[in-house]
Computed example of a mutant assay.
Amino acid sequence: MVSGVLGFDSVVLGTTGVLFLSLGIYVLSKNHRQKSSVYFAIAAFSLAAITLLEVLIENTSQADVINLAIRLHALASMMCFGTMLALSLELDTSMDATRRMNGRRAILVGVSTAGVIIALMMDGRPQSWSGFGTTGGLSVMVLISSISLLAGASIKSYFQARASSTDETFRSQCVILSGGLIITLAGVESIYMGLGLGGLITFSAICFLATEGVLIHLVVVHKLFQLPDMDGRGMQADGDIIDPALTGSTLLIESKDTRPAYEMFIQELSKGKEGMIVTRTHPDQVRETYEIGSSRTLWLCSQPGADRVDPLGLSILQNILLEHMRDNKNGVILLEGVEYLVSENSIDKVLRLIYTLRDAAVISGAKLIMPLDTSTLSIKDQALIEREFTVMTGFSVSD
């Protein structure tokens, strides 16, 4: 039976749980295509389950309900720290893409399996104002040890991601994420260890409230998991036959030096065109080097954040560029970093992206400028790209 009036501690936990749930939904609504956003949302949903289940456990006397809630609580705890570890691997660019992908899969499968096993082992009873203890000591020890190991591995990975980045904003975000994870770990473990402050509020409620503040700060203030909103609409031709010479153009500048491409891009901006840049160079460095005005800059980077695109998310990149072409007729796009995209994806996927962008540029009247170091490609792949572009060496047309 659930009590009719909730105590202050339960109100705090319930409110925090609703906020965790809302935060996860918010992140998914901003960018549901990026894996890091999905992992963060799952962790937020797990935290919502942890806090709301604790409210249920504190306010019911039915043994079967308590036992079920404790089992679900243990599973949610494992999923929370497991997905946080998967998120940390997603951010750690010191590992190659294949290792990160395989590592994430192994973690999610392993954590889900272990979580179910531990949950089935759990059995418990509520303890007023001090979390809840369990009668199965071994299962509690296994759970606490497991989430501690997951949290430790996550923090290590966050600091590896921090060490591999020169972006001071992202480096600070890694520290904040680690701090939030430590607070969360303290809150969850305090429940199973029966720690409390007495009086109106438990130690776990304070920890979860602090965790909520940290995560809201990262998402709302730092915009950690946000990318531009996209509706996924593509380009459509107004007629059956389009003469490329009368509409857009696609220029391939074969050079190890990207400066000729940027100079051509700046020339197009001087004609009043709206520009967008996709680059492997940090946007701040691009703006310091070139007069690109208010042109939007997307950074090819596996670390999440505003105006960053994961190199593995080719569909995201494609949608952003198609949207720019649709909304800015006769605009100009500089696509730098094709070599990086090829290294992170198969050449076939990158070619499909290039072909789609080429067709969209012709249809919309936009200009697509793409610098390319051909020494990084095979002769066959180079030929497949060249046949879709007007090839230039520096500023001398060589087609």
Score class of each variant (00 low, 15 high):
residue 4 G to L: 12
residue 36 S to H: 01
residue 376 T to H: 13
residue 222 H to E: 14
residue 30 K to P: 00
residue 150 L to I: 14
residue 215 L to K: 02
residue 15 T to F: 13
residue 253 I to E: 05
residue 361 A to Y: 07
residue 57 I to N: 11
residue 301 C to T: 07
residue 180 G to Y: 04
residue 159 F to W: 14
residue 214 V to N: 14
residue 208 F to E: 10
residue 342 V to P: 05
residue 163 A to R: 11
residue 285 Q to H: 03
residue 200 L to H: 09
residue 96 D to M: 04
residue 300 L to E: 10
residue 222 H to Y: 12
residue 209 L to F: 15
residue 308 R to C: 01
residue 322 L to Y: 09
residue 158 Y to R: 02
residue 53 L to N: 12
residue 132 F to C: 07
residue 106 A to D: 12
residue 158 Y to A: 00
residue 104 R to K: 09
residue 371 P to F: 00
residue 331 G to F: 01
residue 211 T to L: 04
residue 7 G to K: 13
residue 399 D to F: 04
residue 203 F to L: 15
residue 317 L to F: 06
residue 121 M to C: 10
residue 351 L to V: 10
residue 21 L to S: 09
residue 173 Q to R: 13
residue 9 D to V: 05
residue 99 R to E: 05
residue 298 L to D: 09
residue 374 T to A: 14
residue 203 F to N: 02
residue 292 I to L: 04
residue 27 V to T: 12
residue 32 H to K: 11
residue 8 F to I: 14
residue 115 G to S: 11
residue 234 G to Y: 04
residue 348 D to T: 08
residue 291 E to G: 06
residue 165 S to Q: 08
residue 112 S to D: 09
residue 95 M to F: 15
residue 29 S to L: 15
residue 215 L to I: 00
residue 122 M to R: 13
residue 111 V to L: 04
residue 65 V to C: 06
residue 29 S to G: 02
residue 182 I to L: 15
residue 159 F to Y: 15
residue 67 N to T: 12
residue 289 T to I: 01
residue 208 F to M: 07
residue 153 A to W: 09
residue 161 A to P: 11
residue 296 R to I: 08
residue 57 I to H: 13
residue 382 Q to C: 07
residue 185 L to Y: 06
residue 148 S to K: 08
residue 58 E to I: 04
residue 330 N to L: 03
residue 10 S to V: 04
residue 180 G to V: 00
residue 185 L to W: 12
residue 269 L to Q: 03
residue 236 Q to S: 14
residue 254 E to K: 15
residue 292 I to C: 03
residue 300 L to K: 03
residue 226 Q to F: 14
residue 141 M to H: 05
residue 19 L to K: 01
residue 382 Q to A: 11
residue 256 K to R: 14
residue 10 S to L: 00
residue 282 H to S: 10
residue 201 I to N: 06
residue 103 G to M: 07
residue 346 S to V: 00
residue 237 A to G: 14
residue 236 Q to K: 15
residue 370 M to F: 04
residue 67 N to P: 04
residue 80 C to D: 06
residue 67 N to S: 13
residue 144 I to D: 11
residue 247 T to F: 09
residue 335 L to S: 11
residue 90 E to V: 01
residue 217 H to K: 08
residue 89 L to R: 14
residue 111 V to C: 02
residue 394 G to M: 03
residue 383 A to E: 13
residue 97 A to I: 10
residue 201 I to E: 03
residue 365 G to D: 10
residue 46 S to E: 02
residue 329 K to L: 13
residue 264 M to S: 01
residue 163 A to I: 02
residue 198 G to T: 07
residue 157 S to H: 07
residue 285 Q to G: 00
residue 10 S to E: 06
residue 13 L to K: 15
residue 53 L to Q: 03
residue 264 M to N: 07
residue 272 G to I: 05
residue 107 I to H: 06
residue 299 W to R: 03
residue 364 S to C: 01
residue 337 G to F: 05
residue 23 L to G: 02
residue 128 S to K: 15
residue 333 I to E: 00
residue 24 G to T: 02
residue 185 L to S: 06
residue 72 L to K: 14
residue 117 I to P: 00
residue 44 A to H: 00
residue 304 P to M: 09
residue 240 D to W: 10
residue 279 T to K: 00
residue 260 P to N: 08
residue 68 L to I: 10
residue 282 H to I: 02
residue 34 Q to E: 15
residue 97 A to G: 08
residue 210 A to V: 15
residue 289 T to Y: 00
residue 105 R to N: 04
residue 179 G to H: 05
residue 174 C to M: 15
residue 151 A to Q: 06
residue 161 A to D: 04
residue 38 V to S: 05
residue 363 I to E: 09
